[in-house]
């Protein structure tokens, strides 16, 4: 099986903001070939080298992981891991009312 994508999860699975953030940290660390502990959730992705078309890849991963369709510009408009986490948590919360955080 490929290591590019995790199997799409059921929408209710792993949707707590902490889980989203942890997954994003792992993903960014994966691309940058760095230790997840070295990834700062508040730093601009562009400053870490994930800008322009490369930030688009992360959106593909988000779609595959969470079974969502997101704007490819997600990481442009929400340019840090924290910002993406907040956006995704809100999007999922809106779609999944009553899911406990």
């Amino acid at each position: 099986m490929t290591e590019t994508t995790s199997a799409p999860a059921a929408p209710a699975d792993g949707m707590a903001p902490q889980a989203i953030r942890a997954w994003l940290v792992d993903r960014v660390a994966y691309y940058l070939e760095r230790n997840p502990a070295d990834i700062d959730e508040g730093t601009q992705l562009a400053e870490m080298g994930l800008d322009s078309v490369y930030a688009l890849t992360l959106c593909g991963d988000v779609e595959d992981r969470f079974g969502l369709v997101v704007e490819p510009t997600l990481a442009w408009d929400h340019p840090t891991i924290d910002a993406i986490t907040a956006h995704l948590a809100a999007a999922v919360g809106g779609a999944q009312e009553g899911v406990p955080q």
């Binding site: 490929t2 590019t4 691309y31 080298g49 994930l50 490369y54």
Partner: peptide
């Protein structure tokens, strides 16, 4: 393509 190492999917 699916076996490309992570950095090979970035500007590097």
């Amino acid at each position: 393509a699916v076996a490309l190492p992570p950095q090979d999917r970035t500007p590097l």
